[in-house]
């Protein structure tokens, strides 16, 4: 199959290479020394202003408008993102502390000391463990419950569909402080909803947030409840993109509901799944608000997460150098996990 004539020169070879397995495409490429051949198409003959020149200087007057349009973004990005990110990296190699807040230039370079200290810091290792615990349990539960809700809403429930959609999505858009008030009431060991129910049934409810063993699971349940709405909405969109013919074909071939789910729905949802998994994992690795408002890291640091520890070191004690090294460690972990996911959840249906 040849590429359509409207394609621009740069996209043509890739399209043709991937679309056809014929040897002619690769031969063509080999002949041009690995470089893309530029087929003469009407679009490439002359550029917008009629000059025959193919490649233009990127900073020419022609592009000036584009640069002007992006200036507000660039200015913001450079001032509030790029520069601070670079500054934090530098800071993570210094002993930047409280007294440097007024004299930043006095901070001394200490090489990798912050990083070596980090991995001997029992509290940081505990925070790492807690974060991993939160992610390993929380992410699959969020994805699972989001997918379950989406499948039910997509096919099972006819009535009140909008009502349920709103219901599941409402926690996502609710402010964390309001959520915290409600959940504290639910989990309260003396006056809480669960405690009250348990009393009616003759049990005693445990002190969820006061127990080292139960505090983290409680936060995980709360986080799953808060985040499944996002997963559900994305999965719903993904489900609606699966063509009905495929499903019909499966049914004609005698597939039951479960087989259809396993062999059709899940594989065709892989791109959505990848996106949901990556975004949820990044969010969960950064977990901060739940322990911050519910437990403040306790009891006995059993809900202290990396982000919360970073916040405490950075803004309570102003150990900015140390906190920066934590930020970069977390960043590297997130990057590694994301790359791993991109590899594992590659779309294999194409």
């Amino acid at each position: 199959m040849r590429a359509p004539t409207t394609s621009t020169p740069t996209t043509t070879p890739t399209t043709s290479a991937s679309a056809s397995s014929s040897s002619s495409a690769s031969a063509e490429r080999a002949a041009s020394g690995g470089k893309a051949p530029a087929p003469r198409t009407p679009a490439s003959d002359r550029s917008a202003d009629g000059t025959p020149k193919l490649r233009r200087d990127r900073l020419s007057r022609h592009n000036l408008a584009g640069w002007l349009y992006s200036t507000p973004f660039l200015a913001f990005f450079l001032t509030f993102m790029a520069f601070p990110i670079a500054a934090t990296l530098l800071m993570s190699f210094t002993d930047f502390g409280l007294r440097n807040v007024t004299n930043p230039m006095d901070a001394e370079f200490i090489g990798l000391e912050n990083y070596t200290k980090l991995f001997q810091d029992e509290l940081f290792l505990k925070a790492l463990f807690n974060t991993a615990y939160f992610v390993v349990l929380g992410v699959p539960l969020t994805i699972g419950s989001g997918l379950f809700a989406a499948v039910l809403l997509n096919s099972g429930i006819e009535r009140f569909r909008t009502f349920f959609r709103v219901g599941f999505y409402a926690p996502v858009v609710t402010a964390i402080v309001a959520v915290a008030v409600v959940w504290k009431f639910v989990l309260d060991p003396s006056e809480g909803l669960i405690a009250g129910l348990a009393r009616e049934l003759g049990f005693t409810a445990p002190d969820f947030l006061g127990s080292e063993a139960l505090a983290m699971p409680s936060l995980i349940v709360m986080a799953v409840w808060r985040n499944m709405g996002t997963a559900m909405v994305l999965f719903l969109a993904g489900l609606q993109a699966i063509p009905t013919e495929v499903r019909e074909a499966a049914r004609v071939d005698g597939a039951g509901a479960f087989q259809e789910f396993r062999k059709i729905t899940v594989p065709l949802l892989t791109p959505t799944m990848l996106y949901v998994a990556v975004m949820t994992t990044i969010g969960f690795l950064n977990v901060f608000e739940e322990p911050f408002v519910m437990t403040d890291g306790g009891p006995s640091d059993s809900t202290l997460t990396v982000s919360l520890y970073m916040y405490r070191e950075g803004f309570d004690f102003f150990h900015m150098g140390y906190a920066s090294s934590m930020a970069y460690t977390l960043f590297v972990i997130i990057l590694a996990v994301t790359l791993l996911q991109l590899r594992l959840l590659k779309d294999r249906t194409k």
Binding site: F80, M81, F83, P84, I85, A87, T88, M91, A223, N227, I282, G283, F284, L285, N286, V287, F288, E289, E290, V306, S307, M310, Y311, G314, M320, A323, S324, A327, L330, F331, I334
Partner: peptide, 13 residues
Amino acid sequence: MSRTAMSRTTLTA
């Protein structure tokens, strides 16, 4: 969880 590590880093910086 909408506040990311990077945005806190940004605050610091």
